[in-house]
Amino acid sequence: MNQLIAALTEQTKRGWVPDRTTVFCSWGGSAPGNIGSYEWGKDNSVVLQSSAVAYVSLNYPVRGTETLRATASPTLLQLTSDIQRRQLLSCIRGGNCPGPNVSSLQLPGDVNFFANQLAVPTMEFAFEQTKGEEITSFLSEAQFSAESPETLDPLFKFHETIAKMTAEAILRLVNDPVLPFYPLDIALDVQNKLKDRSVVTQSLLSSASSLRDHAAFFQSETMRPANDPKERDPSHVRMLNDVLRDLEKSFIIPQTPPGVYRNLLYSLPGKTPQFSILRFSKEAVLHCNVSSKAVKHNSADKEVLCHSTLNQSLSLILKAIRSAERLVCFGLGLFENYPNDTI
């Protein structure tokens, strides 16, 4: 992080003026529960919710030397994949390459408050060992570090790679006229989370399909022209970026059961890729069915209550999808190349 700050500061001395602000933070109290990031985020939540466009994490970036792992929220998956792909291509030419590993964010860690409470898109690059050799636990990471950075990376080459990839992400986020976010990735992620047809309603599937179609058109017919200096209108681009910044916020729900993220786009770790609130409701219905068979007294009331919980979860997901679609349609209306009769 110090090298990133030094490099960016040197560029500003040479006259570089970024379009957006970068705030560098070093957190305390991470091991006991991400206390520093949570408290700072909470204290600045009003400004962050209205202005923050992304959170780039540098939490323990060299945990091994075998696999280059990249994690990102759906909004930033394509940017993260592009950066990692270029790094691996460069590595292939030089040899000694770590294997690729790009995934949607599952365990927020130090980004928890930003991703889960504010729905700020997040991304992180890290080197680690292969899954089969990972034996660390929360306790071992918190109190007994397996190997020091000097042991894992004596020449700091892996640290340098992470710094370069992180710097590229920061430069794209602060310099691109249109934020490098991709709504279609959100729409595809939503559809992927609705593959369990046993509980998903037709209205949910139809809404998810409609969101995908509008998101695809939005990327090709609104975002792409906005990146052309000849067609760029500053006020339109600003409103377009506001749409992109707020898209994940459509999936924030006010209250959730324990173990379920407020941001519906995040799945429970180690579970099937579906909405965590939907999995929770399904498990509740299953538990009710078992209880009803064991205890017949008031079984009908229990079944109604359980199915009500499931229907409420489905309703929250449907509301979130439709909210995201309305936002995308608003973005489509910013430019004249979208037919009015389809909005």
Results as ranks from 00 to 15, higher is better:
68 L>D: 06
99 G>I: 10
83 I>R: 07
102 V>I: 11
86 R>H: 13
129 Q>C: 12
91 C>S: 07
111 V>A: 15
113 F>M: 05
114 F>K: 05
79 L>Q: 06
129 Q>M: 14
126 A>S: 13
111 V>N: 11
97 C>V: 04
86 R>K: 06
92 I>A: 15
129 Q>E: 09
103 S>A: 15
98 P>Q: 07
111 V>Y: 09
84 Q>N: 03
69 R>Q: 12
95 G>N: 07
91 C>T: 13
112 N>P: 00
105 L>T: 10
69 R>M: 09
70 A>F: 07
98 P>M: 11
75 T>C: 14
110 D>N: 08
123 M>T: 14
74 P>V: 00
84 Q>A: 04
74 P>E: 01
119 A>D: 08
72 A>P: 03
88 L>T: 01
107 L>Y: 09
75 T>W: 00
100 P>I: 00
84 Q>Y: 02
84 Q>D: 03
83 I>E: 04
97 C>S: 08
121 P>S: 02
75 T>G: 08
102 V>Y: 06
116 N>I: 05
72 A>M: 02
125 F>E: 01
89 L>A: 15
74 P>N: 03
125 F>R: 05
76 L>A: 11
108 P>D: 00
93 R>L: 07
96 N>E: 09
122 T>I: 03
92 I>S: 10
90 S>H: 07
88 L>N: 04
130 T>R: 02
70 A>N: 06
104 S>T: 14
113 F>Q: 06
80 T>P: 02
105 L>S: 13
87 Q>C: 12
109 G>Q: 05
78 Q>T: 07
83 I>S: 04
126 A>F: 14
118 L>N: 05
99 G>H: 10
88 L>C: 05
130 T>D: 00
106 Q>Y: 13
86 R>Q: 14
109 G>D: 12
123 M>D: 02
104 S>A: 14
127 F>E: 02
79 L>E: 01
130 T>V: 10
119 A>K: 15
118 L>I: 01
126 A>K: 13
108 P>R: 02
87 Q>V: 11
79 L>S: 00
112 N>M: 06
78 Q>N: 15
131 K>W: 11
101 N>L: 14
81 S>T: 09
125 F>G: 03
111 V>E: 10
106 Q>S: 05
78 Q>H: 13
86 R>D: 10
116 N>S: 15
111 V>Q: 08
129 Q>T: 14
114 F>A: 15
70 A>G: 07
123 M>E: 00
89 L>E: 10
130 T>G: 04
71 T>K: 08
70 A>Y: 02
115 A>F: 12
128 E>N: 10
73 S>D: 04
74 P>D: 00
129 Q>R: 11
69 R>T: 15
96 N>P: 00
114 F>S: 06
105 L>V: 09
95 G>I: 09
109 G>C: 06
115 A>G: 03
114 F>E: 11
112 N>L: 10
103 S>E: 08
92 I>T: 14
97 C>E: 02
106 Q>D: 11
132 G>F: 04
115 A>N: 03
71 T>F: 05
73 S>I: 03
97 C>T: 08
71 T>P: 02
89 L>I: 04
119 A>Y: 14
77 L>K: 11
97 C>K: 02
125 F>M: 03
94 G>W: 15
100 P>G: 01
82 D>K: 09
113 F>L: 11
126 A>G: 01
116 N>C: 06
91 C>M: 06
130 T>C: 00
82 D>P: 02
118 L>C: 00
